[in-house]
Every structure is written in C-alpha cells, then in structure tokens.
Computed example of a mutant assay.
Amino acid sequence: MPSFDIISEIDLVEARNAVDNSTRELSTRFDFRGVEASFALKDNIVTMKAESDFQLNQMREMLRANMARRQLDANSLDVKDFDHIGKSVTQELHFKQGIDSQLAKKMVKMIKDSKIKVQASIQGDKLRITGKKRDDLQEVIAFVRSNSEELGQAFQYENFRD
C-alpha cells in the first residue's frame, strides 16, 4: 500500500545562517546605531535583546525576512512574550520541531473529515498516511498544504512509497 510521512522539521544550519545574517544586518542599520541589540541562537531558541518593544518587533521582522531568503517558513517560529529586565527587553523565538500530539490529533481529524480514503496514524512526532491509491495520497498533501495556515506550522512530506 502506498504511504508517506508528514513531518515538521527545520534545517538548523539554515536557521543559524538566517540569525547570522540578521546580526550582520543589525550592525549596519542606521536606526540601530548606538543601541544595545543582539540575536543569539542556542538549542532551537533565538533570544533577541534590545532597548524597547518596538526595536524587538523590527528585529523579528528582520529575522523573518532572512528566513524567507533561506527558504525557511516563518510559521515554524513560536513567538514568546516580552521580558523586561532592567533597561533592556528580551524575547525568545522557538523553532518548532516535530508535530506535537494535539496538532497531530487535529490533523488526523481534519483528514478523516475530508472524506479522502486514507488512514492517518500518529508515529511519534510525525504522521503516517497510507492509502490504496497514489492519487489519494497526493490529494492529502494538497489538502494539508491548503490548510497549513490554519494549522500554524510548516510541514514536509517524506518517505513516499508505492
């Protein structure tokens, strides 16, 4: 039976390159001259530090633009709240890796409700889709792509087997 896996992973090398490019851009921008602002990447978490919330918003948009240049989906970022520490403000951005159980259950329900003749099963942090016809599997891929905004995460498709 044909099958494939739906996964959600981000290329950490490209993520590091996007953060490094954002750091370089930060040092050349006129509106950040003389401002204590920085990016730091450690364990799938980008920590941004600046003097105000407005500057952090600009830095986040700068990072999103650099991620787009590196073909990384901005939906893979989980934005946390601002932390005010003294005169500086920090914010953490987490890269989503894998599909958590609640999202996997929601995706399985959506696929079953779509009436496509496939079976979806949760395999750890990925979903395995099996069906009798290859066309049904391709229909599931199109369905998930069309609903990726609602799901709020970037997905990749691998292990397509006939």
Rank of each mutant, 00 (worst) to 15 (best):
P2T: 02
S3Q: 10
S3G: 10
S3M: 06
F4M: 04
F4W: 01
D5N: 15
I6V: 15
I7D: 05
S8R: 01
S8E: 07
S8H: 07
S8T: 11
E9P: 05
E9I: 11
I10H: 05
I10S: 02
V13H: 10
V13G: 12
V13D: 11
V13C: 01
E14Q: 03
A15T: 01
N17T: 09
N17G: 02
N17M: 12
N17A: 08
A18P: 03
A18M: 02
A18I: 04
V19Q: 00
D20F: 07
D20R: 10
N21D: 06
N21C: 03
N21V: 03
N21E: 11
N21L: 07
S22F: 02
S22E: 09
T23E: 11
T23W: 06
T23I: 07
R24D: 12
L26D: 04
S27D: 15
T28N: 11
T28V: 14
T28R: 15
R29H: 14
D31H: 15
D31K: 10
D31Q: 14
F32C: 04
G34W: 12
G34V: 13
G34P: 10
V35L: 09
V35M: 06
V35A: 07
V35P: 01
E36P: 03
E36L: 11
A37C: 05
A37G: 01
S38N: 06
S38K: 06
S38E: 06
S38C: 00
F39H: 05
A40V: 09
A40S: 15
A40H: 13
A40P: 03
A40Y: 10
L41D: 06
L41K: 04
K42V: 11
K42G: 05
K42R: 14
